[in-house]
Simulated assay, not measured.
Amino acid sequence: MLFQKTLISEVVLVVAKRIGDHRGYFSETFREDEFLQNVGGFKFVQDNQSLSAEVGTIRGLHFQLDPRAQGKLVRCVAGAILDVAVDIRVGSPTYGQHVKAELTADNGHQLWVPPGFAHGFCTLEPNSIISYKVTDYYSHEHDRGLLWNDPELDIEWPFDAEAAVLSAKDKLQPKLADLQATFVYKA
Rank of each mutant, 00 (worst) to 15 (best):
C76S: 11
C76R: 08
C76D: 09
C76V: 12
V77T: 15
V77N: 07
A80T: 09
A80V: 07
I81Y: 10
I81H: 09
I81M: 09
L82Y: 04
L82C: 03
D87Y: 11
D87V: 13
I88W: 10
R89L: 03
V90M: 12
V90P: 00
G91D: 14
T94A: 11
T94S: 15
T94I: 10
Y95A: 09
Y95T: 06
G96Y: 11
G96V: 12
Q97S: 13
Q97G: 02
Q97E: 15
H98F: 06
K100A: 04
K100P: 00
E102L: 08
T104P: 12
T104A: 10
A105S: 15
H109A: 13
H109N: 14
H109D: 08
Q110N: 03
L111K: 06
L111N: 04
L111A: 05
W112E: 03
V113Y: 02
P114K: 02
P114L: 04
P115Q: 09
P115C: 06
P115K: 07
G116P: 08
G116H: 07
G116W: 07
F117G: 06
H119T: 03
G120C: 07
F121V: 02
C122L: 04
L124E: 10
L124A: 09
E125I: 01
E125R: 15
P126V: 12
N127S: 14
S128R: 09
I129Q: 14
I130V: 15
I130T: 15
I130Y: 02
S131G: 06
Y132H: 10
Y132F: 13
K133S: 11
V134S: 14
V134C: 15
V134A: 14
T135D: 09
T135K: 04
T135N: 05
D136A: 15
D136G: 12
D136N: 15
D136H: 15
S139C: 14
H142V: 00
H142K: 13
H142P: 00
R144Q: 14
L146R: 02
L147H: 14
L147E: 02
W148K: 01
E152G: 01
E152Y: 05
L153N: 05
D154K: 14
I155K: 00
I155E: 00
